[in-house]
């Protein structure tokens, strides 16, 4: 099957200029990044602040244009200006701050804003809004004012807003970073539901490792480069390397790793407490 997102040797440079327009400094935010996402996958990108993961997201959404390399989103070349609108339609984005991506005074209207802007007929909009709110579990709040909602609920409204535009892919750029644990779980669950039930491809950007244990594939970024790839299990089995990259592994994985180091016979990359309980049972 063809990839929905395909990047090869992608480079992006932030160019700083002084007041006269002379180039002062060039910062390479993406350094020859290769990325492949298949339709229907849930792919996670991990990395600490400043590792280039948000820059990558903005390239995929055509908010930024790559400096070098190739990037195809749903078959369209993102380097060509005429494709900008198609690319944005294919890859919707949910940002970090719940308070600056909601614009309407009623939840339902906010979700309708995207499709309305795209010129979708009214009866179709009504259908889409209902489906989108249902999918993120916010139907009961359709007549609410967004300022009466919690952070997690606002993010789910934002996701519904993106979904109503029917993109092939949703990019969540640290959409849980400003939420409390309950809100984080709600948002993650909503995205997994969209992925499983509607087949929407998800590109999930985060620095919380415990949120990506259910992802299909994980990319780890550092200084603009992809430094690790694999399934969550493959990636999390490399505890030392992750810690070198200033990322921490989930507590259970860390515990299993420490036990193994002390001579307990355990497999690599244990992710959940259920797995660890099973493994320890065999040893007792």
């Amino acid at each position: 099957m063809k990839n929905i997102i395909e990047a090869s040797k992608l480079v992006f440079e932030y160019i700083h200029r002084d007041e006269e327009g002379n180039v002062e400094a060039i910062e390479t935010a993406l350094d020859h990044v290769d990325l492949e996402v298949k339709p229907g996958q849930f792919v996670a990108i991990l990395g600490h602040n400043g590792s280039g993961k948000s820059t990558l997201a903005k390239n995929i959404n055509a908010l930024l244009t790559p400096s070098e390399g190739t990037l195809y989103v749903a078959g369209k070349n993102a380097l060509e200006e005429e494709n900008v609108w198609d690319v944005r339609k294919s890859a919707g984005m949910v940002f970090q701050n719940p308070d600056n991506q909601i614009i309407a005074s009623v939840v339902e209207e906010d979700v309708a804003f995207g499709p309305e802007n795209m010129g979708v007929p009214e009866d179709e909009i009504i259908k889409r809004v209902a489906t989108a709110l249902e999918a993120v579990g916010m139907t009961a709040y359709k007549d609410y004012s967004p300022n009466k909602l919690s952070g997690g609920q606002k993010q789910r409204v934002a996701i519904a807003g993106v979904m109503a535009m029917e993109p092939h892919c949703i990019i969540a750029d640290e959409s849980t970073a400003m939420l409390d644990p309950v809100g984080r779980k709600e948002v993650l669950k909503a995205l997994h539901t969209l992925n499983k039930e509607k087949g929407i491809t998800i590109l999930y950007i985060t620095h919380y490792m415990e949120e990506v244990t259910d992802a299909d594939f994980v990319y780890v970024m550092e200084k603009g480069k992809v430094v690790m790839t694999g399934t969550p299990r493959e990636v999390f089995s490399q505890v030392e390397k992750l810690e070198e990259l200033r990322l921490s592994v989930p507590q259970i994985t860390k515990l299993a790793y420490e036990l193994k180091k002390s001579g307990v016979d355990l497999p690599d990359g244990i992710l959940t407490k259920e797995e660890l309980t099973q493994e320890l049972k065999k040893l007792v």
Binding site: P181, I252, K273, T277, L280, K281, V284
Partner: peptide, 17 residues
């Protein structure tokens, strides 16, 4: 919640260890 290791220890105990 509690730290995941606390929950793990409870699970281990519950499964008879």
């Amino acid at each position: 919640g509690a730290p995941s290791v606390s929950l793990l220890m409870d699970d281990l105990k519950a499964s008879g260890m």
